[in-house]
């Protein structure tokens, strides 16, 4: 049927008449597959939504490569968008078909990795941070600089996660470097060596982070924004800080496979996914930060995603993670192991 109709004729038809079934490829339980959200989308546009899931970025890429035409919307972390684009797996977004894009933070829309080859290949959807949180009992006023980690007053009450990449990038921020292009590894090593005596223990999971914070063992520790929002809502006396040195960010975008035959419906779905109406409801169920400034502004005033992350000035300080080569990862791991073994 579609081959006979021109796009103009399609646009003129009533929603029910061009009802498509779009297939979305995403992590399970990550926003796009919320029942109420799909029901609302189907009611508004007539399109139905079917989901398929991946459990790793590599699996997502493999599925796109081996099943052309099977998917219409795919979630791609910005670190992987350039690779998907280079392999010809995804197609540029038509901003005219995504009206809500106008409200998306321009800094995120301009993200280097979402614009490989100069065109927008992924609509910024959600993002989050690795920064740090402090115990409000020790800090009536939240600090503004990473230097608190090296403050002798908190010796033995500092923690970072036991992860080589995160530790090295954290030290890169503290030494004023670009986390994706660390030129002075000696400075990073020196900074981490200096940090070690301050550390009580390395945290591994949200649960032990919360326990140590609740017991007063930690005064200041690196943390993820989503986890911090959960800890705060559970009543833990902590405050999440995005310091002046910046923070490590991740950014998820929604892309359209080049092989999709239902591009209009796919664009409509992406538009709904960044719609403030959708986000405000999703946020109440525990969502990461939104890319849409209007959506953040529509949140309740005390909401974490509005109060802490809703400010475009915060986004401006974030350094979004780019792909890390295996050799780099191994070099970081060797450094991290050496530092830990030296204790």
């Amino acid at each position: 049927m579609k081959t006979i109709l021109t796009p103009a004729a399609l646009a003129l038809m009533t929603p029910m008449a061009l009802a498509d079934e779009i297939r979305v490829l995403n992590w399970q339980g990550y926003g796009t597959d919320l029942d109420w959200a799909i029901a609302a989308f189907t009611e508004a546009t007539g399109h139905t939504v079917v989901h398929e899931y991946f459990t790793s970025e590599q699996e997502m890429l493999t599925k796109l490569r081996t099943n052309p035409g099977a998917y219409d919307v795919v979630l791609i972390n910005s670190a992987f968008t350039p690779q998907a684009q280079a392999e010809g797996l995804i197609t540029p977004i038509d901003p005219m078909k995504v009206p809500n894009l106008a409200d998306v933070d321009p800094a995120l829309v301009a993200n280097q990795d979402l614009n490989p080859g100069g065109a927008l290949y992924g609509v910024p959807w959600t993002w989050g941070l690795t920064s740090f949180a402090v115990n409000t009992g020790d800090f009536p006023e939240a600090p503004t600089s990473l230097s608190v980690f090296w403050d002798p007053a908190f010796k033995g009450r500092v923690s970072i996660r036991d992860d080589a990449l995160e530790a090295v990038q954290f030290a890169a921020l503290a030494t004023g470097q670009n986390i994706n292009d660390i030129t002075d590894m000696d400075a990073v090593k020196a900074k981490l060596t200096e940090l070690m005596p301050q550390i009580a223990t390395f945290w591994g999971a949200e649960t032990d982070w919360n326990q140590n914070m609740a017991a007063g063992q930690f005064a200041v520790a690196t943390y993820w924004s989503g986890s911090a929002a959960r800890s705060i809502s559970e009543g833990l006396p902590v405050a999440f800080v995005v310091p002046e040195e910046g923070a490590i960010g991740w950014l998820d975008g929604l892309s359209i496979p080049a092989s999709s035959t239902k591009q209009d419906a796919a664009h409509a779905f992406i538009d709904w996914m960044i719609d403030p109406d959708f986000y405000v409801k999703w946020e109440a169920e525990g969502a990461p930060a939104t890319s849409n400034t209007a959506a953040a502004a529509a949140l309740p005033e005390e909401s974490f995603n509005r109060k802490v992350l809703g400010d475009p000035a915060v986004v401006a300080r974030v350094q979004f993670m780019r792909p890390v080569a295996d050799e780099t990862r191994e070099a970081y791991l060797a450094l991290w192991q050496e530092l830990k073994a030296g204790q």
């Binding site: 070690m196 550390i199 009580a200 223990t201 390395f202 791991l333 192991q337 830990k340 073994a341 204790q343």
Partner: peptide, 20 residues
């Protein structure tokens, strides 16, 4: 229990199996 002193040969092996 060891915190930052807790890296041992055993945790090194565990990391290779579980983390890396």
């Amino acid at each position: 229990l060891g915190g930052r002193f807790g890296t041992t040969y055993g945790t090194l092996i565990e990391d290779q199996f579980v983390a890396v």
